[in-house]
């Protein structure tokens, strides 16, 4: 019994230690960000691997999510003779929820896991220690550009996802199912508010980008430097990032739209 309680305490302490390490790590990363001004090349290279290479999956998923919403929304709305509101239904669900959330989940799977594996392997092959030996701070040189690249890429990807999704819904609703072209856009413009809906979606994607990238680079940096440790870090990145995104999404939605 006593042993069991001690184990509970030990795991609790280690959880708190990890949390503390993660926060100190974030602080060091943020301190390292201004140094990037002198070496923008590092950031550009990361924007390429984190942002540009995620583009394909984001565009394709956005298109299909929009098309499915168009189809489902039409089938539901046509029962009430309200298929003209399809544009509103598609735009609001994508801009407020699906755009930021699905992008963040895909981003965690596509870019987050890659970041964690890359940094974890760097640690396992002692590249990070090598940098320290040469008096190069690996947090400034390796972590900071990756963190900033994730934070910049995520809102851009979410915006692309939303825009493509709205056009996917347009393609199915107007192109295939025969909703009126003008009604689709005018009802949408009437009901979607720039600040209440679109800006809040952008804020969500900024928060998700921050959290997902933070989890990814921390898990990679904190990985046990073995092949098993790296594989665990990658798995944990995707799982924790997905849980964090969905949990935070509820909190943010309650704060933004809950009144």
């Amino acid at each position: 019994m006593l042993e069991w309680i001690r184990q509970l305490g030990r795991s609790g302490i280690s959880q708190f230690e990890t949390l503390g390490r993660a926060n100190l790590f974030l602080l060091k990363t943020l301190v390292g960000l201004p140094g990037l001004l002198r070496r923008p090349g590092l950031l550009v290279a990361q924007l390429w691997s984190v942002g540009v290479l995620s583009l394909l999956i984001i565009v394709v998923s956005g298109l299909f999510v929009g098309m499915v919403l168009g189809l489902q929304g039409y089938n539901t709305l046509v029962d009430f003779g309200a298929e003209e509101s399809l544009g509103v239904a598609v735009a609001l669900s994508i801009v407020r929820e699906l755009g930021p959330v699905v992008t963040a989940l895909l981003f965690a799977g596509r870019a987050g896991s890659a970041l964690a594996a890359e940094i974890g392997l760097m640690k396992a092959t002692e590249q990070l220690s090598g940098m320290e030996m040469m008096a190069v701070d690996p947090i400034h040189r390796v972590i900071a550009p990756r963190f900033l690249a994730g934070f910049i890429s995520m809102p851009l990807l979410a915006a692309i996802f939303s825009a493509v999704g709205v056009y996917g819904g347009y393609f199915v609703g107007v192109g295939l199912l025969g909703v009126d072209d003008g009604a689709y856009w005018s009802q949408m413009q009437d009901k979607v508010d720039l600040f209440d809906d679109i800006l809040n979606g952008v804020i969500k994607s900024l928060v998700f980008g921050w959290v997902v990238t933070w989890i990814a680079v921390f898990e990679g940096y904190d990985a046990v430097p073995t092949s098993e440790g790296v594989s665990r870090a990658t798995t944990r990145t995707v799982v924790y990032a997905a849980l964090a995104v969905l949990g935070l999404d509820f909190v943010l939605t309650a704060l933004m739209f809950g009144d």
Binding site: A45, L47, S153, L156, I160, A163, M188, D193, I198
Partner: peptide, 27 residues
């Protein structure tokens, strides 16, 4: 790389612009 990153950022900004002008009530 630089060219593609530039295009990526431009595409993201364009998507935001589309959302603001075409989807929302700004227009």
């Amino acid at each position: 790389t630089e060219l593609m990153v530039g295009m990526f950022i431009a595409a993201g900004a364009a998507a935001l612009f589309v959302l603001a002008m075409r989807v929302s009530n700004l227009s």
